[in-house]
């Protein structure tokens, strides 16, 4: 970090000073915006929902934090916590899948890459899910699939809407074909909701690719993206290697998705509660009128 101090303090005494300053500041009180490099005071940043105050960049946040800022504080029940990962294939690449799971669990304090909570949003009952991108890239394996469909079942039984925040690199390679089939599993459960007239809002948060975008993420009655989020089937690198062209500016970003008709709207993080509540209230009202 360079500041006005760098310019006035002679360079030979700088190293010490920098070290001292480092040690006297509590770890992580400041955060650098990955987009505009502005250095942001963390308490302010948190108040601003981890959106850069300078450039409005929506930073990646954990699944817990996502649902914490989205749902009402009261009346939360986490679903399907008993579903935990098993290494059925005894998969091993450079590391064992089992070990990868353990370190991901330690790093994120989650059992797998999806959490589901039965809660409320401005008093409206919903089941809300969020992908933990830091858990093996938010990849979808059998736990993600199973938790997802169990959450769908609760929606069906209690006739409450579903909201899911996707953030995923795609299917989990370490579960091979089992993970591919989770695409069919989650899509089938969503089709059940559709037939039952239960609304589903799919939020795309950076990034959503592969098996997750080509299943549950693109099946919302309403698809909403966070500003600047990227979504696509194939990643930019794979496409570049295939077509041997430079990709257009903003390719696969929210604005691109909106222009190409893939999503209904782009909604800033701070407006999500209100927008969701408004949309679901309308959809529910229509739904109830039909029941009568």
């Amino acid at each position: 970090m360079s500041s006005w101090l760098d310019k006035i303090v002679p360079s030979r005494i700088m190293p010490n000073l920098v070290n001292k300053r480092h040690s006297s500041i509590p770890e992580g009180l400041w955060k650098k915006c990955p987009k505009c490099s502005a250095v942001l005071y963390r308490p302010d940043l948190e108040k601003n929902l981890d959106v850069c105050m300078k450039c409005n960049h929506h930073m990646r946040i954990s699944a817990r934090r996502r649902l914490e800022i989205f749902l009402d504080k009261e009346n939360q029940t986490e679903l399907a916590t008993e579903v935990v990962p098993v290494d059925r294939l005894k998969f091993r690449d450079l590391k064992k899948y089992k070990d990868r799971l353990v370190s991901a669990q330690k790093a994120t304090e989650e059992k797998d890459a999806l959490i589901a909570i039965n809660g409320r949003i401005m008093d409206l009952p919903v089941v809300a899910m969020a992908f933990e991108f830091n858990f093996l890239g938010g990849s979808m394996g059998s736990v993600v699939g199973e938790r997802f469909i169990q959450a769908c079942k609760v929606c069906l039984e209690e006739r409450i809407p579903l909201v899911c925040f996707s953030a995923s690199g795609g299917a989990r390679m370490q579960e091979a074909l089992i993970s591919l089939f989770q695409m069919a599993k989650t899509s089938a459960a969503l089709e059940k909701l559709k037939q039952a007239g239960i609304p589903y809002i799919s939020y795309l948060t950076d990034p959503v690719y592969g098996g997750v975008s080509a299943s549950l993420a693109m099946l919302g009655d309403i698809n909403i993206a966070e500003p600047g989020a990227r979504m696509g089937f194939a990643g930019p690198r794979v496409i570049e290697q295939t077509v041997r062209e430079t990709l257009p500016e903003g390719f696969q970003r929210s604005e691109f998705l909106l222009n190409h008709g893939a999503i209904d709207m782009i909604t800033p993080r701070k407006d999500m509660r209100e927008v969701t509540n408004r949309l679901l209230t309308s959809l529910n009202a229509a739904n109830m009128a039909k029941d009568i």
């Binding site: 899509s187 299943s215 993420a217 979504m231 194939a234 295939t242 077509v243 008709g261 893939a262």
Partner: peptide
Amino acid sequence: PGIDAEERGQSEAIA
């Protein structure tokens, strides 16, 4: 995995 396929909604078509 092509630009045109992405523009026309490859993910949505599969899903």
